[in-house]
């Protein structure tokens, strides 16, 4: 089954590029991605630009409305995702729980709908 792990976190100042703290943070992400690749469960994964860059849109009666910002006003924002291929939910949860920001934010695991 395929699962999307949606990574939500509260926007916090990240360490400056080039500092040892920044390196440590990046290493954690690289390491966990490596774990997924080695286990053969990773179908994809990306980090998103901060929420300030988001544009939401909807089409009503044929008219396109765009809005500056995310769809929902929440404290935690979608910051990235991984797409996993796992045998069941338990396995997906096991891998999703290794995501570094699971310690501070929330990771939502959703099965991908099988449309045949």
């Amino acid at each position: 089954m395929q699962y999307l792990a949606l990574i939500y976190s509260t926007p916090e100042p990240t360490p400056d590029y080039g500092t040892p703290e920044f390196e440590a943070m990046m290493k954690e992400w690289r390491d966990v991605t490596q774990v997924y690749q080695d286990a053969g469960v990773m179908l994809g994964g990306e980090a998103l630009q901060p929420v300030e860059t988001a544009t939401s849109l909807r089409k009503r009666n044929g008219t396109l409305e765009t809005m500056d910002g995310p769809f929902a006003e929440t404290k935690e924002h979608l910051g990235g995702f991984y797409l996993f291929d796992c045998k069941d939910l338990d396995e997906a949860i096991k891998y999703a729980s290794m995501i570094p920001t699971a310690r501070t934010g929330t990771v939502e695991v959703r099965p991908i709908m099988d449309v045949g």
Partner: peptide
Amino acid sequence: KAAGIAYE
């Protein structure tokens, strides 16, 4: 069923 909770 939909989330693939294992019957194990």
